Computed example of a mutant assay.
Amino acid sequence: MLRIGAHTSIAGGVHNAVEEQLEYAGNCGQIFTHSPQVWQDPNIGDEEAERFRELSEENDVGPWVIHSSYLVNLCTPKDDLREKSIDAMQKEVDAAAKLGVPYVNVHLGAHTGAGVEGGLDNAASALEELEIPDGVTVLIESDAGSGTKLGGTFDELAAILERCDQDLDVCLDTAHMFAAGYDLSTPEGVDETFAAFDDQVGLEHLQCVHLNDSKHECGTNKDEHAHVGEGLIGEAGMRAFVNHDAAEGVPLVLETPTEDGKSFAWNVERVRELHEA
C-alpha cells in the first residue's frame, strides 16, 4: 500500500494531528511536538498520547515521524548549543516512545567553522550521547547544502552512520536533494540518484521520504518547496520517484506549501495519481 501523508499540526492536542491527516486522506504523517522555532520541551499528556495511538491504529494512519526543532545543531562546535541540542533530541526520542512513533527526524546542522570533518565528528558524538528507547530510530535528513550545513551529500550521510554506534537511518528530502545537485527531474536522474544512494549509504537505511517539488534549479542549494509535479523537479521526475522500486513501501511525507488554492489534500491526491500512472 502507498503510504502518503503530510506534516500536520498538534494544536489542541497531539491526537488532532490524526484527525487532520484523515481530512487530507493521508495514511502516514509527521508532527512537531512543539514550536520548532524555540527551545521548548514536548508537553504531551498521557491521555492525549493514548488517544493519538488509538486513533492512529483505528484508522491505519502510520508510520508517524517527529521532526525535531529547527534550533537543534548537532554539528556545532559551541558547547552550550551542543548541550541544548542533545537535551532537545533526548526529549524528542522520549516523546516518540510515549506516542508509539517509530522515527525522529533531524537535520545535522551547520559546522560554523569547525570544518566538514569536525562537524561530522561533532554530530556523531552528540548522537552517541542519546539514550534512544526501543522501537524508536533517529533519521538523519538530507539537506540542501547551503553555507556550512552538512548532510547535503550522500557521503556526509554515510559518514554519520559509519561514525556513530547508534542504529541510525535516513530521511531523504526530494527538494533538498535537488537543491544539493541530485537531478531528479528525469527517470534517468532518479535511477542514478537512487543508485548513488544505495552505493554510498545503502537503501536499507532509507526509512522515510519528504516528498517536495522545488521552486529552484538543481544545484542552487536553495530550499523552497513547490507543489508535487509543479516545480522544477516536475511531473516526470516525481512520477519516476514515487514509482521507483527503491521507494516502494517507504512512507512519503509532504511538506508542500499551501498556496494557489492547493493544500496538502491536493498534493496527497496528486501523488496517488502519479503513483497509479
Rank of each mutant, 00 (worst) to 15 (best):
L130F: 03
I44L: 07
D167V: 12
H227G: 10
E131H: 12
K78L: 13
A144N: 13
E269K: 13
L232R: 07
M89E: 03
V201N: 09
Y103W: 10
G147R: 11
Y182Q: 04
V93F: 01
D213L: 04
G145F: 00
E162Y: 09
E217W: 05
V106D: 01
D46K: 14
S214V: 02
D191F: 03
G261T: 07
D169I: 11
T174L: 00
C171G: 07
E273D: 13
V14K: 01
D121Q: 13
V228G: 06
V101W: 02
E50M: 12
E224F: 12
A236R: 13
Q21G: 12
A49Y: 04
A265G: 09
G151D: 03
E156S: 03
I86V: 15
E20P: 02
N43R: 15
N212H: 03
T174I: 00
V101R: 00
M1N: 11
L274W: 05
M238D: 06
A180D: 05
L81T: 14
C164S: 12
V190M: 02
E83D: 14
D199S: 13
D80C: 07
F194W: 11
F264Q: 14
K91D: 06
A144T: 09
P36L: 02
V116W: 02
N212F: 00
G231N: 08
H15Q: 13
F178C: 00
K78D: 15
H107F: 01
G118Q: 08
A97R: 14
E162V: 11
T33Y: 04
A49L: 10
C28R: 09
G189W: 00
N212L: 01
E162T: 14
L172K: 02
W64M: 06
G261V: 07
Y182L: 07
L206G: 07
S68Q: 07
H176Y: 03
E235H: 13
L139K: 10
N122H: 12
L127V: 08
L211T: 03
K262G: 05
E255V: 06
L81V: 15
I66P: 06
C28V: 11
D191V: 01
V201T: 11
G145W: 00
P251L: 08
K78P: 00
V268H: 07
K84T: 11
E269N: 12
D173P: 01
L252E: 06
A240I: 10
P36I: 00
N16L: 11
L139I: 11
R270W: 04
A95E: 04
E192G: 04
H107P: 04
A180I: 03
S56H: 02
L127G: 03
G62C: 06
A97I: 08
H67A: 04
D46A: 15
N267T: 12
G100R: 06
T220H: 07
S214M: 02
A240L: 08
E204K: 14
V104K: 02
D143P: 05
V138P: 00
E235Q: 13
I4K: 01
L274P: 10
A236P: 00
S185P: 08
D134V: 03
E269L: 09
V170Q: 08
N221H: 15
G249D: 11
L184E: 02
D155H: 12
S56W: 01
M177L: 15
H107N: 03
F194R: 02
F194S: 05
V104G: 00
